[in-house]
Amino acid sequence: MANHSTNEFKGGLKVMLDGDPCSIVSNELVKPGKGQAFNRVKLRNLMTGRVWERTFKSGDSLEGADVMELEMEYLYTDGDMWYFMQTDGSFEQYAVEKRALGDDEKWLKEQAPYTVTLWNDNAIQVTPPNFIELEVTQTDPGLKGDTAQGGSKPATLSSGAVVNVPLFINEGEVLKVDTRTGSYVSRA
């Protein structure tokens, strides 16, 4: 991979730092009057999700990371691995470990579109669509007529996620949910 110098560090650029692939979050030039310039850089470690802050001398460089983001749909799990398939017509399949799914395992739905981040052709991260439609599998009975009042209750969705929903929602209904905040949006 090519090396990238500090002045090429832009949000989203993928580089290697301490052996892990990272995505640049922000880069600020700090130039004392007449002295050596520095770049204060925030990077997200793609393996752990943690954000690091590092200072580099301007002109220093980091090796690029062979990171790609591909659109895939979720197929199934055999309990050990989760399988996704590319939607570009190649039908190429990738097996994803639990570690790459993290908390987002609860947003998996067959045939829904996900962004799978590959590093050296291994899946390291799965990002669910911002909004997903899921069926309510369990919730306490709704209150008749209560459609406008406030108040909420937990509901378990078909993917296993538990979200707070309005009191009028019933089992079997399909809901639109925001996966970034884990919150109910509307009936689908």
């Binding site: 002295g35 590092r54 200072t55």
Partner: peptide
Amino acid sequence: SMPEGALDDEPRDTCLDLLMSF
């Protein structure tokens, strides 16, 4: 926010600049 040793070759003024700036 630099790893230990990163400034081993740097002169006094660079270190002072860094502390001043950051």
